[in-house]
Structure formats: structure tokens, C-alpha cells
Nucleic acid binder design. Structure first.
Lengths: 234, 234
DNA sequence: GATGGAACTTGCGTTGGATCAAACAGGCGC
DNA sequence: GCGCCTGTTTGATCCAACGCAAGTTCCATC
């Protein structure tokens, strides 16, 4: 571990409340890995030998169904943990993790988790807080799928991506990694055709600009309006 | 706590690997509560003062959207924990919990959790294993909503309920608590009309028998076939 | 045993999106 | 610079499921 890594890492929310000396002990046991775009970090059903912290890049977590469908469960951004199957009593990974862009990750052997959890209560608390918020997210997804139309779901997905990985550029806010219509479709439970039509329509209205594997949200506020529309019925 | 409670409780998977003496210390700090059918155990956004273990009955966990829709997140059966917001770093409950039948629960003050977690590592491990499997379930729900048709989703929901709370009777397997078409619709993201139509069709085919707030699955195997049909495309 | 309300059934018209199909870029290797 | 592959656009058609509406059955209560 280069020492400049450490200063970056200390600010991450996973390590909030952890003493600097402890942080060294934790990070010292990780190895740092580079993963090229398109490569997988870990794979569904594989034995969960390691857990990971994403330092740089973006990872797409995908589940495959027996019938051959692929559903994107979530995107992981810098500073987030992934592959923590061990902390949840699983021995295999529940999904595939694919690098959506070139990535740098820290990897720890899974067997270290129990020790970490008892030695560093803050780490444990922070991790389970994150798990809790993922559970929340998943439930929110279920609710969106149950109650919203495709248009709202796609708008919400874009807004979520913007919030998580938006980068301000002159035209608006760019989603800072390559993302295709197909990817968005897999996040929202629709088809690339419908996503394409929606993006085209929004482009005509000046809400977004998009091209090949690239989406820029020009007017987030108006997109929020789209995301909230119609859902009212009660 | 009556002593016969303790023998029942010792067998629950949450308490697996916990010494009898410890179990007494844990259960000794709980109070036991009866909740009548239709009453709520806890409510969305309420401050999470307690966490609960369901001893008897069934609880329906429901989320309400701002737009006034209700989505059933899951059914809790005997032996399961609920309201463990505290263990996941939340201060409020994320959903409403309604007694689907008369219930008996144990309740602990939330502030005991951190102590429990450090004093009884097995309890902590068991709890987070359960959280992990709920996260899994939620992701499975998302995938079902994305890739399956209403018919498969309803079939799967019934099979899940049968597995969780099925009671063998002469006609087949009864779902052992009152459940309406509306409830099933809220679990599967559809309308009571569609659920009613499906159940009627299945009844004609001899797969199920159903009536007012009551569903009996007569031929689980054939329902499995329905649940798996069509999804094949790839 | 009459009354009222909740749960359920069923028919019909409508429609949001999926599916099918075909053509059109943009980037990369040679 | 040319072709190829992958990602994207756009049109046409179809159908599963929703929304609406009317009617029925069951249960609780007085």
C-alpha cells in the first residue's frame, strides 16, 4: 500500500470512527488489484474467497436468471464495499460483478471478516449500516417496479446514477462511466428499445443529451418532474 | 416469561449456537406482547424503540408510497425477527408491520442490541445471516418483477407462502392465515382483479381451491410448472 | 332474518410496452 | 480508407394486464 492511498481511504464512510493505527492494520492486510473494463471482479455462485473495497472506477452487479435474463442489481461507486457475502453468512457470491470502467479495488480474504468485525466495532457498524441501506434500496426498487410506469422508472434510474456518479460538465451532468441503453434497460426491467425511445423523446424536449454509451442530464429538475408524474392515483 | 416458552424458543434458528444460560439472559430482558389481528406491531417512520421476535401468528410488512400505493414487502412467520432497524443503523422503522392473524411477540428495547451483538456473537451472526437472506429475497423479487409475467409471479408468491406457512389438510395445503386477493396483488405488483381471474382459472383446472381470505393449493407440482412456464426466451 | 359492508367474480374496452423488423451510425482493426 | 461489429434509432403490430363497471356471495351485526 502506497501511503497516499491511506489518506484517501481514511475519509471513506466505511472507515468512519476508526483509529488511524487500526486503519493501517486493516488496510495493511489488503492487496490492491486493477481490473480492466469488462473484466469481472467476482462471479455468481463462485466461492466467496475475498471481499472488496472499490477505490476507483465503477462496478455493475448483475444477476443472471436460469432462463437467461440478466438483471442489474446495482452500480457500485468508489468507496463502497462489495462481495461481503461472508459478513452475511453466505459462502458464495450472489451475483456477478463486472467492471463498468477500469477499476482499482482493495481485496481482503473473507476469513478475516469475523476478526475485523469483533476487533473494530465501528467497521462492523458501518458495514451493516451499508447493508441496511442496500436492503432499503432493494425494497424501493420492488416498490418502483410495482407502482411506477417504465417512464418514471427510467427517469428515477438516471437520477440515481446522476446522484451517485454525476460529473458536472458544461452541457449538464454527465454519468461518469460508459452505459448503454441495454444497461439502463436491465436496471429498470424494460427493453433497450423502450429506453431508446424515451431518451430520444427527452432529448427532443432538451432534458438530456445522449449518445453511444453516454448520457448527460441537462435539466435534472425537469427530469424529477417526469419521475414523479402520473404515479398519483391513490 | 413462562418456562415453557424457553424450551420452544431454544429451538429457533436465531438462537442457534447460544448457551442456555445466555438464552435466559437474552429472553429474560424481553417482554411478551399479544397483538390482535389487524393491529400494527410497528409503523413506518416511527422511532425504532424495540425489536421483535414473532413467536406465534403472522405479520405482514407493508410499505406505503407517497402516492398512496401499498406494497407488501414480506410476510413474517413464527421464529423470525422483525423491526431490527437498530442493527442496521437506522433510527426509524422502514415499513408498517400488521398482524395478519393474532400474534404473540417478544419485544426488546432497541438499545440492547449493541450489547447483545458483542456479548453473543452467535446471535449477531444468525441475525446478519437472516438479513443477508432477506437481501437475497428482495433481489429475487426485483428479478421476478423484471423478467416474469404476472401469472408466474402470482404462482411463485403462492408457492412461497405455502413453503413458509403451509399446513397440510385433506384437500391439499392451506395457507395458514387469512389472505385476500388484494393482499396477493400487493405482494406481486398487480391488481386484485387479475389475481381473482388467475385463481378462478386455476380452480377450474383443479390446481387450487380458494374462497374468502383463504387459499388451498391442491397440486403444488402443477403450480410449479405454471411458475416456471414461459420465462424461457434467451 | 333483514341489512349493510366487505370480499370476490366477471365482462369489456383500452393501452402501455413488448416484440418483430429493418435500417442507421460510430468506432476499431487491418 | 474500407469494412465490420456493436450499439442505436424508429416504425409497425400485437397482446397481457389494467381500469372500469356491474353483479354476486359471504359474513357480521342488530
Amino acid at each position: 500500500m502506497a501511503s497516499l492511498d491511506r489518506s484517501l481511504i481514511a475519509g471513506l464512510s466505511v472507515f468512519e470512527g476508526i483509529a488511524v493505527a487500526d486503519l493501517d492494520r486493516i488496510v495493511g492486510q489488503a492487496r490492491s488489484i486493477r481490473i480492466a473494463r469488462g473484466q469481472s471482479v467476482f462471479e455468481q455462485e463462485q466461492e466467496a474467497r475475498s471481499f472488496f473495497l472499490l477505490l476507483d472506477g465503477h462496478v455493475r452487479v448483475v444477476k443472471s436468471t436460469p432462463a437467461g435474463h440478466e438483471v442489474t442489481v446495482r452500480y457500485i461507486g468508489p468507496g463502497e464495499l462489495m462481495g461481503i457475502a461472508g459478513a452475511l453468512g453466505r459462502t458464495t457470491y450472489p451475483a456477478n460483478a463486472l467492471a463498468a470502467a477500469d477499476c482499482v479495488v482493495l481485496a481482503w480474504p473473507s476469513h478475516l471478516w469475523p476478526t475485523f468485525a469483533t476487533s473494530f466495532p465501528s467497521l462492523s457498524a458501518n458495514t451493516y449500516r451499508m447493508v441496511g441501506s442496500r436492503l432499503q434500496d432493494a425494497h424501493t426498487r420492488v416498490i418502483e417496479m410495482s407502482t411506477e410506469q417504465v417512464e418514471q422508472r427510467v427517469a428515477n434510474a438516471l437520477l440515481k446514477l446522476v446522484k451517485q456518479s454525476g460529473k458536472k460538465i458544461e452541457e449538464g451532468i454527465l454519468i461518469d462511466f460508459p452505459i448503454s441503453r441495454q444497461d439502463i434497460a436491465e436496471m429498470t426491467g424494460t427493453t433497450l428499445h423502450t429506453v431508446s425511445r424515451l431518451l430520444s423523446a427527452w432529448e427532443d424536449q432538451g432534458l438530456v443529451k445522449s449518445g453511444r454509451q453516454r448520457v448527460v442530464v441537462v435539466e435534472p429538475h425537469r427530469l424529477v418532474v417526469v419521475a414523479e408524474a402520473r404515479g398519483s392515483k391513490s
